[in-house]
Design a protein around this nucleic acid. Structure first.
Lengths: 260, 260
DNA sequence: CTTGACATTCACCTTACGTCATCGTTTATG
DNA sequence: CATAAACGATGACGTAAGGTGAATGTCAAG
């Protein structure tokens, strides 16, 4: 492992390090015992002292741990002389993205299960486990493609395509109307009841395409402001609309959750 | 647990069930031993046989397991006579959404760490662990607010705000230009080299605000088409643009990944 | 009648710590 | 200065969720 940290800086006691990292002292004992994170200094009384470099290494360890690597694996990874922190951090980002996708599949499977339980569809037994293994998923997607051809279809797109052209235009116009109405309502402030009601309508309108949970809607709200593409489109309707939308969505979600 | 499944249907051997669910036979033994999933029938030779209802219950168990519930907790949850599958499925969706958020924070922490390691910023030690515990995160956000006031600020928004008004207008115009140029290029087809190059520029332009990975960009691509709000704004530029953008993004990402 | 696939139970092993217990050290306080 | 509280060390045992293997039973097919 290549770590260019001139460690001159501060040293931490075992408890300091543990509480900074949000872990127990015992864990650091354990990591010392198995040679995963050995303090560079031991005072005469055998007290452990950690330097700044251990901070980074511990972060690495906990990253990998979060990704369900075994401590043994982590050790070999970190001991690898070819090991480049930045490269591995980038790889970790990818792993996390994979995990996000997996969770998204799970959410999808849950939706299907709910649908099945409500008796509206007949789910085959194997579908129950679609969210699980990679191979099963690959296999499953193959069948889907065999059924629907090679187009990148999914339910919301199919639902959209099933609308008449008339209806599509209508929906688009509706969306734009909302943006305009929300823009007009900006001076009232994001916590104005009228604005809150507008947000509710906006949200309910979405449900047609997409099963948008409150949490999901909140995420979208942030994106309205933060993603440059969306931000730009909102800002052209009216300067400040992107940020206003974010605030209004967050506020609406908060109110809605308080109801429950 | 309320499960209205008239189990008349097929019965499965232990191995069949295990392989359907992608788990080991031993796990089913274990679940039987601790009374978590007991087969309804044992033939004379003590062989276990499972029915359709066990499929659903096992799915529930594995769902909760994925969410790091202990088997003990899972047992009490499923034994609760008040237990409503659909309600809990909805709760699980929420938990999964939380997990997604947590991962998003991790990705953010990784980005900061990379930034720090490249010597471009000075990260405080505690920031190393920002992705971890909830309390730490709450604490941390408090400090942020103390520093920046009560606005819901984040790096990309700060970055945006740090631009001059002139520059902001410029960026918005740029985004719109892209949309227009991409719309104009639609007849060429999403796999046209010119379109691919446009997508690259679009992507690179994003990097200014947001560290958009290829995977993330692909997700965004799907949203352009699937999220009604964004779909609507794209469709007003030109009908069919939303779907075209999705295809073009997916194609671009595929090409880009093939390069690696 | 044997072989191979599948089933059973019993029993010990593993990982990554938690949880004492027992003891030494340091520091704050009366 | 004495003493308690807080922190440190080591050692030993416990735990959850299975893995792994041994010894043995069952059954259909060749």
């Amino acid at each position: 492992m290549i770590l260019y940290m001139e460690s001159a800086q501060k040293t931490y006691s075992i408890k300091e390090l543990a509480s900074m990292a949000g872990i127990s002292v015992r864990i650091l004992h354990h990591y010392d015992a198995i040679g995963l994170l050995i303090p560079d200094r031991r005072s005469g009384n055998r007290y452990r002292f950690y330097g700044h470099s251990h901070l980074l290494k511990l972060q690495q360890i906990l990253f990998f741990r979060e990704l369900d690597f075994s401590l043994e694996q982590i050790k070999t990874i970190l001991e690898d002389p070819e090991f480049d922190v930045i490269q591995v951090l980038n790889e970790q980002k990818k792993l996390l993205a994979d995990r996000q996708k997996r969770i998204a599949r799970w959410i999808c499977t849950i939706d299907q299960t709910i649908h099945y339980l409500q008796g509206e569809g007949s789910m085959q037994d194997k579908d129950f486990y679609a969210g699980f293994s990679e191979e099963k998923q690959a296999e499953y997607e193959k069948e889907i493609r065999a059924m629907y051809g090679d187009e990148p279809l999914n339910t919301s797109v199919r639902r959209w395509n099933s609308l008449s052209k008339e209806r599509q235009k209508e929906m688009i116009a509706k969306g734009n109307q909302f943006h305009q109405r929300i823009a007009d309502a900006m001076p009232l402030g994001y916590d104005n009841p009228e604005v809150v009601d507008l947000m509710r309508q906006y949200w309910e309108n979405m449900q047609f395409f997409y099963d948008v949970s409150l949490d999901r809607f909140e995420q979208l709200g942030h994106m309205y402001n933060q993603d440059p593409a969306f931000r730009a489109t909102y800002e052209t309707v009216k300067p400040g609309l992107a940020e206003f939308m974010e605030q209004a969505v967050v506020h609406f979600v908060k109110l809605e959750k308080a109801k429950e």
